[in-house]
Design a binder for these strands. Structure first.
Lengths: 142, 142
DNA sequence: CCCTTATTGCAAATCATTTGCAAGTGAAAT
DNA sequence: ATTTCACTTGCAAATGATTTGCAATAAGGG
C-alpha cells in the first residue's frame, strides 16, 4: 500500500481534511487496475458506510486538485482513475466476461506519437479492449 | 454515404424489418467518428421523432446481430459503435474541450500484440485521449 | 390491398447522479 | 483534553437516464 500512502500524503497537502469517506474513495482507486465509475465505488464501499453523494463530491474535489483524472464518456457517464498511476491494461472476453491482464501499459509510445502529431501536451489515455478468450473460441469439448 | 448503404444492406439481411427509427440509429453511428452513448443519439435525433426507448431497443438488437459493438463502461453506461468501422481517433483538450483528429487508427498493431500475448481473438478497442492543446498551453497572449 | 407480427410510442418504473441543508467531525489553537 | 470553526457528511428530495409493459402502428410478403 505504498501507493495509497503516497496519495494520501499528497491529498493532505492540498485539502484541509482527510476523512473516512475520502480515504475510502482513494483506496478504491488505488486498489483498482481499471478506471472506475462512481457507481462501481458504491458497490465496493457497500460495507464502508459512505453515502453515494459523498463519493461523487469527493471525486469532484479530487479532480479539482489534480489527484484524480476524470474521463467523460458521455453526458452522464464518467470514469475516474488516479492521475499518475503506473498501470497495466486488461482485456475482457465478450462471451464469458473473464478478464485477462495484458501486461505493462504500452501506450507511452502511442501518446508520444500523438503529442508529436497534434502538439498536445499532458496526453492521457483510457482504453478498453474486448475480444474472445481462448476458452470461448473453441466449441466447448468436454 | 456508401458506408451507410452497406450497413443498411447488411442489417436487412439479418432483421425482418427496416424501420424509420432503425435507419436513424444506423445513420447516427455512421456519421459519428466517436462511439456514442444512447443519450447522444437522442440529442442527434431530437427532430427525427424517434422515442428514446426505441433507440435503446434498436441498439440492443443491432448488437445481437453483431452489426454494432457495445462497450460497457460501468453498470449503466455503455457506448456504441459500428462493429466494423474503419475509424480514426481524436484527442480532446481538457481546457477548452476542442477536439483534434489524430489520423488513422494506429491500434491495429496494438491489437495484434494483445492477441499474441493473451491468445484472445476478435480483439476490439475503445480509446479516449485527452490532453492540453497548443492554444491552451500558452498563457493567452493577445 | 390485406395480414401477420416485428417494432414503435407512451407511460410508468428503476436506478444513477446531483443538490440543499442541517448535523457531524477533522485539526488547529487553546 | 477541550474548544472552535468551517469543511464534510448523511439524508432526503430533485433531476435525468435507462428499462419495461402494453396497446397501437407499420414493414414487407402474399
Amino acid at each position: 500500500m505504498a501507493i495509497y500512502d503516497d496519495i494520501l500524503a499528497k491529498v493532505r497537502e492540498q485539502l484541509p481534511r482527510m476523512t473516512h469517506a475520502r480515504k475510502c474513495v482513494l483506496r478504491c482507486l488505488c486498489e483498482s487496475e481499471q478506471p472506475l465509475a462512481a457507481n462501481d465505488m458504491q458497490v465496493m464501499l457497500a460495507d464502508a458506510d459512505v453515502d453515494a453523494a459523498t463519493i461523487y463530491r469527493n471525486l469532484e474535489t479530487l479532480c479539482q486538485i489534480g489527484v484524480v483524472h476524470k474521463v467523460e464518456m458521455s453526458a452522464r457517464g464518467a470514469l475516474f482513475a488516479l492521475a499518475d498511476n503506473d498501470h497495466s491494461h486488461s482485456i475482457k472476453c465478450t462471451e464469458c466476461n473473464c478478464r485477462v491482464d495484458i501486461g505493462d501499459c504500452f501506450m507511452a509510445e502511442v501518446e508520444a506519437l500523438i503529442q508529436q502529431r497534434t502538439g498536445f501536451d499532458s496526453v492521457r489515455h483510457l482504453v478498453n479492449f474486448t475480444g474472445v478468450c481462448p476458452q470461448c473460441r473453441q466449441p466447448q469439448q468436454q
